[in-house]
Design a protein around this nucleic acid. Structure first.
Lengths: 217, 217
DNA sequence: ATCAACGGATAGCGGCACTATCCGCTATCC
DNA sequence: GGATAGCGGATAGTGCCGCTATCCGTTGAT
């Protein structure tokens, strides 16, 4: 298969494929002549993965390059790959060293120890979590921590489902890719489900007509 | 308060504040002279909200403008505001009219009716959901639908917690803003929690040393 | 023999979130 | 009352990002 056919099969324009190769997302084709290359099914699969991570997962090209490099490196342990995949919602690197930040960090530490989670507070996810909680506190929603355990329960359930799926369904040689897909696209799935459930819960709480009267400020 | 002080209090540079005013995110200050304006606490609060939605929620400036316009319009029913807030993860508008897309739409319709969710399949969230599922199917992870109900359970739990919090904690006049904050920042919170739980579940399944041997392709 | 398609390299584009500069005016300090 | 810092407002520019367009010499299909 040559580039034109690869493009037709995946719907990705030829110049874009070239761009992905340049950026290291897609390995170059195998050269049959000094300037003719052929692409196989692996390229097609990889290309679809790239587009899914980009379009559905909302990842950036550079992040995808990192993840795929980790994916292709058999030396790299799975959690490093996942780290590369998951440390993307960095919520910007804005340092707020105020009271809210300190409180939020304490809340996160407490949560982690209370649930016995085997993780460290230096985990980027923990940092993101405390940043999000601190931002809520600064907006006057510090009381949100009261429902944090409900959130954590749900997160555990999702994580369990995710791991179960990967463990049950995916062959060992594809496990790493399966985890990446599950983590990144699973987030999009859950986000959509949450919004659907939100509509439903709101309807049940306030009746089908929607929420009650508004008397905004 | 004048612009410089607003900038100092919130950490947002003055030209950026001007930019937000231009883009309609922040109402202009009240003019005391033809070219002097004063800003109040509402501006400060609004500015913090903008930064939270931008930095933590990952929303775009134009989306925030929509949401805030809806927020400021007392005529607009809450679900419209939320729609403006939630319809952002549009996962790009790429139309794949293939078998996977059709299957995914059927799966979503089935899920919605099975759970009795009071929503319609034209809901953007439902469309996003089927797009995400279709993308997974194209990547060979069509079996992911087997854990979809676990995801949906968790989503319902989160939605319930969210609504409970808003209903219990937030005064009626701030309800709309509370829902927006809960929806957008809550997503960041849950995402981080999911990643934490993922690490823990992985550790419990595969032992503390991490996942098993890799034998990638 | 012709001619579209190929790979490779380089330059450009459009969108986005700012950022820098300039303007004439004003509040404030001495 | 004169200097100076800051103000609000307008316009243009910056840097990054995900492509996209163009050009080149080569090659495979007809």
């Amino acid at each position: 298969m040559r580039m034109g056919e690869l493009s037709r099969k995946t719907g990705v324009p030829v110049p874009t494929i070239k761009y992905y190769v340049r950026e290291g997302l897609l390995p170059p084709g195998e050269l049959s002549s000094p300037n003719q290359a052929t692409y196989g099914e692996a390229h097609e699969r990889r290309l679809r993965l790239i587009r899914a991570l980009l379009d559905v997962g909302g990842m950036k090209v550079a992040e995808i390059a990192d993840v795929l490099a980790a994916l292709d490196d058999p030396e790299r342990p799975l959690h490093k790959v996942l780290g590369a995949a998951a440390d993307r919602l960095g919520s910007a690197n804005i340092e707020h060293d105020d009271a809210e930040a300190t409180t939020a960090q304490a809340v996160v530490a407490d949560l982690v120890s209370r649930r016995g989670w085997r993780t460290h507070e230096s985990n980027p996810a923990a940092i993101d979590l405390s940043k999000a909680l601190a931002a809520m506190a600064r907006l006057g929603h510090g009381a949100f921590v009261e429902v944090l355990d409900d959130y954590a329960d749900a997160a555990e359930q999702v994580a369990r489902a995710d791991l179960t799926y990967v463990d049950r369904r995916v062959a060992v040689e594809d496990m790493v890719e399966g985890v990446v897909v599950g983590t990144v696209l699973g987030e999009a799935v859950f986000s959509a489900l949450r919004r659907l459930a939100h509509v439903d819960a709101s309807a049940k709480l306030y009746g089908t007509e929607g929420p009650p009267e508004r008397k905004t400020s």
